[in-house]
């Protein structure tokens, strides 16, 4: 039976090189969305955002995104975030596509 769980993931860009990053369950910044922590209620999302925003020495532009947890992994609901996971569609040179 397939999982169909929605939630939120915290994302940002790395301060030094701008790479798209996600917050893991250890509250570390990771490159792969599949290693991100999925927050399922408003309180935990809010707490995670407060925590993430304190890490300005590491990241820039923190926000949360809606995701689905599927058998294939964590999938963002909006196409904008799906592009951020994959990198640009005109060349295969996005940093995230190198990871996945």
């Amino acid at each position: 039976m397939s999982k169909d769980l929605s939630g939120n993931v915290i994302t940002a860009n790395n301060l030094l090189d701008g790479t798209v990053v996600y917050m893991s369950s250890q509250f570390k910044w990771v490159l792969d969305i599949n290693n991100a922590k999925v927050f399922s209620n408003d309180t935990s999302i809010e707490k995670a955002l407060i925590h993430a925003n304190k890490q300005q020495h590491e990241v820039v532009g923190v926000y949360s995104i809606r995701v689905d947890q599927t058998d294939a992994g964590i999938k963002s609901k909006h196409f904008r975030e799906q592009f951020r996971v994959k990198g640009p569609s005109n060349y295969n040179h996005g940093k995230q596509s190198e990871v996945l």
Binding site: G18, T19, V60, G87, P88, K95
Partner: peptide, 9 residues
């Protein structure tokens, strides 16, 4: 002239 875009600066 330095922006932050989707994937990088």
């Amino acid at each position: 002239g330095l922006y932050l875009q989707l994937h990088a600066y």
